[in-house]
Simulated assay, not measured.
Amino acid sequence: MTFRKTLTVASAQYPIGEPKSLFEWQDKVAEWVADGANSGAELLLFPEYAAMEQAAIHGIEVASDLRRSLAAVAEMAGERVAFHAALAKEHGVHILVGSGPVIGSDERYLNAAQLVTPDGNIGEQTKLMMTPFERDWGISSGGPARVFETSLGRVGIVICYDSEFPLIARSMAAAGAELLLVPSCTEFVSGYHRVRTGALARALENQIACVTSPTIGDAPWSPAVDRNNGAAGIFVPSEHGVSDSGALAEGGLNSPGWVSATIDFEGLRRLRSAGEMRNFTDWALQPGAEDNGSSAEVISLI
């Protein structure tokens, strides 16, 4: 297992656009990745359902129809991930690809995010907890919960609503994850605050870092991502000498750009035995803890 002392991450406040062609979309993403890499970050995070802007490539008849847009974006999943993998290699960074629909083995739609490494390795996490609107769309719950062994350390991915459920994150922390990536897509500011609160809570409970990345802006042409509100954040336990508020960095609401910070993993590890509180260690002392002690599956991307 890799133990990093520090890691600089950059999280996108990503505006949903309306690309007219695949090349226009590729140019946009390539520019974003270059800007994120130039910040000095080793890991770049894009949001949940960022992939849905690709529906616009197919014209308004497809983009404005929910079923057809889901099918079109799902069909492009392999090409989309390969494009990000090439950018990861070019810039020497890890990238969490903006999530989108994929077709599962039983022909159901799943919401999946892929973590790509500079060496070309790819790990995929599907969303576990479906929101009411995703159920209406016909998106199904995926799984299992996974933790990815990388040269940056062990990384878990909790997609939006998943961050609001403590046992998912706990299973990843129990499997050694020291960083949770939280891509999100929330229509209202209230949804943004739910995800932010979840990320802060998961960081506190497990004494790890959580990074959120939202879609932002309006896309009236899309029934899937028509309205988006949020801000990116890099969160750790609120602890004296670490962060009084629990926020290492946060962006302005609905302002496009990257939010970056350097995470002190060594300092976070010390909290578990020498912090003001010992939440990770003391988890087992709470009533009922014996019923929720499972660990996520570990997948190597090295």
Rank of each mutant, 00 (worst) to 15 (best):
D162V: 01
F46P: 06
T212F: 04
G252A: 07
R196C: 13
L152E: 03
G252P: 05
D136G: 03
T215M: 02
Q125H: 10
I208E: 06
K5D: 15
A74V: 01
N279P: 10
H91R: 07
F133R: 15
K89V: 09
H84R: 07
S300P: 07
V33E: 10
L45K: 04
E134F: 13
D65G: 01
A72H: 04
G275W: 07
W32F: 08
N38H: 14
L66M: 14
N121P: 10
S141E: 14
V158R: 00
G230I: 02
P47S: 03
A249R: 09
N121Q: 15
V211I: 15
A231V: 01
V93T: 13
R108Y: 13
S39Y: 09
A41V: 12
T2D: 08
M172W: 14
D27S: 12
S260K: 01
I57W: 00
L179M: 07
L128G: 08
H84G: 12
F3K: 15
L167H: 14
E297Q: 14
R146K: 14
A177G: 03
I57L: 01
G92C: 08
S190I: 14
L200G: 06
R146S: 08
W283D: 11
S140N: 10
I57K: 00
H91T: 02
Q125R: 06
L301T: 03
V29A: 05
S64E: 10
Y161T: 12
C160I: 01
A112T: 09
S260T: 10
R68V: 00
A203S: 08
G78V: 03
A88L: 06
Y192P: 03
M52K: 05
H84K: 08
I302R: 13
V9W: 00
H240E: 15
L96M: 10
I139V: 13
G198A: 11
Q26C: 03
D35H: 13
I16H: 07
E250N: 12
A51N: 03
P166K: 02
A86C: 04
E90M: 09
H240D: 15
H58R: 04
P101Y: 12
F148Q: 13
V29N: 07
P118M: 06
M1Y: 11
R108I: 13
E31L: 11
S255N: 06
A177L: 02
A77V: 08
S238H: 14
E24R: 00
S222K: 02
L128Y: 09
G92I: 06
I60P: 10
L110P: 01
S295E: 15
R194T: 14
G176D: 07
E42N: 12
